[in-house]
């Protein structure tokens, strides 16, 4: 099996990570398990890292504006809410029609992620990844069937990869520690 290294255009956006200064990284690390649930969470966070509440808030506002922070949110645990089946569906879609199909699928209820990824030879012909969520497998299978109909002859093949066990799931860890670790690697 040949595995080539692929660089996407989107990846250049990763260099935007360099826009984060040390204080941003300290802030991200101090809040990665969540904001304190107190009336003034900004000051409470600031006290941990020697920053005033106004600056904490201003930095988060800037991270939101620059797109590094997608949102500050009450993040639901979908599994706990009863979405017990999570199916990663992979599709072999006509390249000429993938953008149109991707945009339509992304709006489908139950779809949480919809990404184009590279094919990897005859062993892995799938170029579109669509994450489906449901209460049971049957529901995810029904959703996939509906998506298949929507795609018509633009789709050559698809598979559903159900998860059988979650070994590790954490939020993004982008921290000073991590940066230092990666420099010493």
């Amino acid at each position: 099996m040949s595995i080539s290294i692929y660089r996407s255009e989107d990846r250049t956006a990763a260099s935007a990570g360099r826009r984060l200064d040390d204080a941003d990284l300290a802030l991200i690390e101090a809040t990665q398990d969540g904001l304190p649930l107190v009336a003034d969470p900004w000051t409470a966070v600031g006290e941990r890292i020697g920053m005033c509440g106004e600056e904490v808030l201003a930095r988060f506002q800037r991270l939101l504006l620059t797109g590094v922070l997608r949102r500050m949110a009450a993040v639901p645990n979908h599994y706990r809410l009863g979405y017990l089946a999570n199916g990663m569906t992979v599709w072999d879609i006509d390249d000429a029609r993938i953008a149109d199909i991707g945009r339509r699928l992304a709006q489908w209820p139950g779809v949480s992620h919809c990404y184009r990824r590279p094919r990897r030879g005859p062993d892995w012909p799938y170029n579109l990844f669509v994450m489906l969520h449901g209460h049971q497998r049957e529901e995810v299978e029904r959703q996939a069937e509906q998506l298949r109909e929507l795609m018509g002859d633009a789709c050559r093949d698809h598979q559903i990869l159900f998860s059988t066990r979650i070994l590790k799931k954490t939020g993004l860890r982008l921290t000073r520690r991590q940066r230092e670790a990666s420099c010493s690697e």
Binding site: D10, R11, A13, A14, A16, G17, L20, I28, T31, Q32, D33, G34, L35, L37, F60, T66, G67, V68, L69, R70, R71, M72, A73, A74, V75, P76, N77, R80, L81, G171, L172, L174
Partner: peptide, 20 residues
């Protein structure tokens, strides 16, 4: 949060902007 319904009240980062 204690019930596990909310994973955390916190930041959702754009992975592409915040790193590779």
């Amino acid at each position: 949060t204690e019930m596990g319904i909310i994973g955390r009240v916190g930041a959702v980062f754009n992975h592409r902007q915040a790193g590779a």
